[in-house]
């Protein structure tokens, strides 16, 4: 029977002074399985292993982790697509404090999300029915509203590692653009003002890790580009009107 070797990041704050890598050897599964299935098999052997999981189909965003060096969702990553020489290494998402094993503290990530005011703002009186929106305007949200907040993108971003408190990060910027792009939202100017400091958006240097890891195939870099564009146009307009 062929074996596979799983190297797993372990840390239990009650027992371990430092994190360490632990190696597990398993029979190679007969059919291709997802990385989450692999973790579930390991947990049956060693129940002290901790990780988050919920939907097991790539829509809830619980099980983002670093798989052989690249962030992804364990539940939709086939083992065959990542395993190399029968070895696989699983680590927590980089750059966030580790609570235990593969579980990271996402407080800072969520704080950036809340900072961009991730809700529709429209103070006009609501009609008795829905607010109308043309299919063309609605299409502008495609590729932006589908984010599942798994944090794979932000935690793969060196700019976010440097300034997790000041750089909004790709995930929250994607959300920021989702509302900037929504024809029903009326706070475009205020939203842009909130993002106009040197850190919030401008710390993005187009490294594109966010695009390469997004498990939903979204493009935060495009959203960031659009925001920068809007900021630039807004600034120009102000100069023009001043002059």
């Amino acid at each position: 029977m062929q074996k596979i070797e799983v190297n797993l990041y372990r840390y239990n704050p009650e027992k371990d002074r430092f994190p360490y890598m632990m190696s597990y050897s398993l029979d190679k599964p007969k059919k291709d399985i997802m990385v989450l299935d692999l973790l579930n098999m390991l947990k049956e052997e060693d129940e002290s292993i901790s990780y988050r999981r919920s939907c097991r189909e790539g829509v809830c965003g619980s099980d983002g982790m670093n798989i052989n060096g690249k962030n992804g969702l364990a539940c939709i990553t086939p083992l065959s697509s990542v395993i190399k020489k029968n070895k696989i290494e699983l680590r927590p998402l980089p750059g966030l404090p580790v609570i235990r094993d593969l579980v990271v503290d996402m407080t800072e990530f969520y704080a950036q999300y809340e900072k961009i005011k991730p809700f529709l703002q429209n103070d006009t009186e609501a009609p008795l029915q829905e607010r109308l929106q043309s299919p063309e305007d609605r299409n502008k949200l495609d590729g932006f509203y589908e984010c599942i907040l798994c944090a794979c993108c932000s935690t793969s971003c060196p700019s976010f590692w440097w300034n997790p408190d000041k750089f909004v990060g790709p995930a929250a910027l994607l959300q920021a653009y989702r509302f900037l792009a929504d024809s029903r939202d009326l706070k475009t100017a205020e939203r842009l003002d909130d993002l106009s400091d040197p850190f919030s958006v401008y710390r993005c240097h187009g490294i594109m890790n966010c695009v390469s890891v997004c498990p939903k195939g979204l493009n935060p870099n495009e959203a960031i580009g659009e925001i920068k564009d809007m900021l630039l146009k807004k600034k120009k307009n102000i100069i023009v009107s001043d002059g």
Partner: peptide, 23 residues
Amino acid sequence: GPKAVFELEHMGLPFSRFENGRI
């Protein structure tokens, strides 16, 4: 129901749309 669904739309739920702009 209709009241509850329209509330969701007012909250920002990105419903798909018909050509006339309705849900």
